[in-house]
Simulated scan of single mutants.
Amino acid sequence: MWTNFTKLFPGKVLKDQMWKCAKSTTLPYFAKEMEEMKALDNEAHKWMAHKDRPPQHWCRAHFETWSKCDIMINNLCESFNSFIFDARAKPPVSMFEEMRVKLMKRNQIRKDKMQAMVGNLCPKPRKVLEKNKMKAASDCISIGNGGDQVEVETFEGTKNVVNLTARTCTCRMWDLSGVPCKHAVSAIYHNRADPENFVADCYLKKTYLNIYSNLIKPVNGMEMWTRSEEPPILPPQHVTDIFHQKISKLQM
């Protein structure tokens, strides 16, 4: 979406505003940023608000919170595509074998690396949490109500309500990412608790190791494989061959 947008509406100002709209985590902020876009370029606003581009597909304010992931770009699949790039050009059996070996090596490297880590959290969530701790210390003031809800005010004058039992914040960053935002960290410290205990289970070291406990087993070389009675796997037809077949049928 960003690529198509920049082709039609070039310039850093519009690009930055488009990302502000996409990164809005609440509906009021999303509406505010869309109004800013409208003031900058009405045609750009119409393009983003078109029915073919529903915000449920590109704006955090409309994302569900069950996945605990606020990623908006497809770098993950692009990285995996690059990882298997050389194998894709090979015949089917050789392709699958190279992918299997690559994944087997990768799983061992990931598992060994995580086992060497100190602490209960994975490195990247810990880094995000440490940043939010610094922001909470310098920017947030918490006011409790004697229960599980805490009102957090920032020096900018904004206020957000944190529910420690439900693990939610009205800014929705904690809900979306699974890592306590600065408001949540401030509220957690106000209740004399440890923010690390409020990080989503998917970011725990034990969860990561549990995922990589399902090992890919080694396989003997092809010369030791049992002969199959099934027909051999053939490569897919070339596009031009399929096209000529369709032409021939039409001519008949």
Rank of each mutant, 00 (worst) to 15 (best):
E36A: 13
E36C: 08
E36G: 07
E36L: 10
M37S: 01
M37E: 01
K38Y: 09
K38F: 09
A39Q: 15
A39V: 02
A39T: 06
L40N: 05
L40H: 04
N42T: 15
N42G: 07
N42F: 10
E43A: 11
E43C: 00
A44M: 08
H45Y: 15
K46R: 14
K46L: 14
W47L: 08
W47E: 08
M48N: 02
M48H: 01
A49M: 11
A49L: 05
A49E: 09
A49Q: 06
H50V: 03
K51C: 03
K51G: 01
D52Y: 01
R53W: 14
R53E: 00
P54G: 09
P54D: 05
P54V: 05
P55E: 07
P55M: 05
Q56P: 00
Q56N: 12
H57E: 09
H57V: 00
H57K: 08
H57Y: 04
H57C: 04
W58S: 06
W58G: 10
W58V: 06
C59F: 01
C59E: 02
R60G: 00
R60H: 01
R60M: 13
H62L: 10
F63D: 05
F63E: 12
E64Y: 05
E64G: 14
E64P: 02
T65I: 06
T65G: 03
W66V: 11
W66H: 15
W66I: 09
S67Y: 04
K68Q: 10
K68G: 04
C69W: 03
C69I: 02
D70T: 01
D70N: 14
D70W: 03
I71T: 13
I71L: 08
I71F: 00
M72G: 07
M72H: 00
I73M: 07
I73N: 14
I73F: 09
N74D: 11
N75P: 03
N75Q: 06
N75C: 12
N75I: 07
L76E: 12
C77Q: 11
E78H: 09
S79F: 02
S79H: 06
S79K: 03
F80M: 15
F80H: 11
N81Y: 03
S82D: 11
S82H: 12
S82T: 05
S82I: 02
F83E: 11
F83D: 12
F83Q: 14
F83C: 10
I84P: 09
I84K: 02
I84E: 10
F85W: 08
F85T: 09
F85M: 15
F85R: 15
D86Q: 14
D86W: 04
A87K: 06
A87M: 13
R88Y: 04
R88P: 04
